[in-house]
Amino acid sequence: MGKITFYEDRAFQGRSYECTTDCPNLQPYFSRCNSIRVESGCWMIYERPNYQGHQYFLRRGEYPDYQQWMGLSDSIRSCCLIPP
């Protein structure tokens, strides 16, 4: 099982949303994503809903700024857990 936490502000500040399963639409939970903490598993995150747009592969670790995962913007709208 994986676990990823999205934060609206840099350095793990602001409103957060924790996810443990695939989520095709993160828009209801936060308006922007400036930092991420991957506590377990590997995740693919996407800039648009329904697994569309630019995608980024994240391993376990801390990403205090969206540029840390080579993001082009602070828009993350869907995510899925990559099976081991």
Rank of each mutant, 00 (worst) to 15 (best):
D74E: 15
E8Q: 12
N25M: 12
Q27I: 07
M1C: 05
T21H: 03
D9Y: 09
A11S: 11
Q27Y: 04
T21F: 14
D74G: 01
I36A: 03
Q27H: 03
R15I: 05
L26A: 10
G2M: 04
D9F: 12
S35E: 00
Y7D: 00
E8M: 13
P49E: 06
C23G: 11
E39A: 05
F12T: 03
M1L: 10
Y51T: 15
S31P: 02
S75Q: 14
S16P: 08
D9K: 14
D9T: 04
C80R: 15
Q13L: 05
I4V: 09
G53K: 12
Y46E: 00
G2I: 12
E18F: 05
N50T: 11
G14T: 02
M1T: 08
Y29D: 04
Q52I: 14
Q13M: 08
R48C: 07
S35D: 00
R10E: 10
S73F: 05
D9N: 09
Q13G: 12
E8D: 13
R48E: 14
I36G: 05
N25I: 13
S35N: 00
Q13N: 07
S35P: 00
E8T: 07
I4H: 01
E39W: 02
R48H: 10
Y7E: 00
G2N: 12
Y17G: 03
S16V: 09
M70V: 15
I4G: 00
N25H: 08
R10D: 07
C23M: 10
S75L: 14
Y66C: 03
F12P: 01
S16T: 07
Q13T: 08
E8I: 04
N25R: 05
R37L: 00
Y17T: 06
R48M: 07
F12Y: 04
L81T: 10
M1R: 06
Y7A: 01
Y51P: 00
F12A: 02
R15G: 14
A11M: 12
Y7I: 02
R10Q: 13
S75H: 14
I4M: 06
R10S: 14
Y17Q: 06
I4F: 01
P49F: 09
D22N: 01
L72F: 15
R48Y: 04
R15T: 15
M1K: 11
F12L: 06
E18Q: 06
R48I: 06
Y17L: 06
T20N: 04
Q52Y: 09
I45V: 02
R15W: 06
L81G: 14
Q27N: 07
T20L: 11
R48G: 15
L26G: 07
N50L: 12
S35C: 02
F6R: 00
Y51Q: 14
E18P: 06
D65A: 03
T21E: 11
Q52D: 08
S16C: 05
T5F: 06
E8H: 10
R59S: 03
T20S: 11
R15S: 14
E18C: 10
G14V: 02
F12R: 03
R15C: 13
F6T: 00
S75M: 10
G2E: 09
G14L: 02
T5Y: 05
N50S: 09
P24S: 07
R10I: 06
M1I: 02
T21R: 08
P24W: 07
L26M: 11
Y17D: 02
C19T: 06
F6I: 03
V38A: 02
K3I: 13
P24A: 08
C19F: 14
D22C: 01
S31F: 02
D9Q: 13
W69C: 15
Y56N: 13
T21V: 06
I82V: 03
E8N: 14
I4P: 00
W69L: 15
S75G: 11
G14K: 05
P24Q: 05
A11T: 09
A11L: 13
F6C: 02
K3P: 04
N34S: 04
T21A: 09
G53V: 03
Q13H: 14
R10P: 14
E18N: 04
N25W: 12
Y46S: 01
R15V: 11
I4R: 00
M70T: 15
Y66H: 04
H54Y: 07
S75P: 09
Q52V: 12
Y51M: 05
S75K: 08
D22M: 02
G14I: 01
F30R: 15
Q52L: 07
N25L: 07
Y17E: 11
S35Y: 01
L81D: 09
S35R: 01
M1P: 03
A11R: 08
P24H: 12
L26F: 08
P84S: 04
